[in-house]
């Protein structure tokens, strides 16, 4: 007990053992990068949700078009098929372009 107190007494004026460091700039820069990444992720998430909603709507339209009665044939039938293919390609495009999964994953990796 006596030793403990003595050591405390000896070390009471020592508040730092190591040389001072200055990481202020580096840390603030890292925080700003972190904030930027978070904003970008939120942005991509919002876009992804928009794309999902849009895809849902387009798929419903496709469903309606395909469920048209068989009596509507010939020219109308071709139009339906053509429109369906265009819409499918459009959905794929939206998924790839707005989802941006690669960029999204990169941002997430930067954060972790």
């Amino acid at each position: 007990m006596g030793n403990k107190d003595h050591l405390k007494e000896i070390l009471e004026n020592i508040d730092e053992v190591n040389e001072p460091i200055d990481l202020e700039g580096i840390i603030l820069k890292a925080i700003q990068k972190e904030e930027h990444s978070k904003v970008q992720i939120a942005h991509y998430k919002a876009k992804g949700i928009k794309a999902l909603v849009l895809s849902g709507i387009l798929m419903i339209i496709l469903g309606i078009l395909f469920s048209l009665p068989n009596s509507v044939r010939s020219f109308e039938s071709s139009m339906v098929t053509y429109t369906s293919i265009v819409l499918t390609l459009f959905i794929l495009f939206i998924q790839l372009e707005m989802g941006r999964t690669r960029i999204f994953n990169n941002q997430k990796n930067n954060l972790s």
Binding site: E16, N18, I21, L23, I27, A30
Partner: peptide
């Protein structure tokens, strides 16, 4: 930062690693 560095270096025992720990700790705290 200097207090955090003292605590970090007492565990990791290496100045460069301790600086990394301090940086990560501040980001986590933020």
């Amino acid at each position: 930062q200097n207090k955090a560095f003292g605590v970090a270096i007492s565990i990791v025992k290496c100045e460069d690693d301790a600086k990394d720990v301090v940086q990560d700790s501040f980001i986590t705290a933020y």
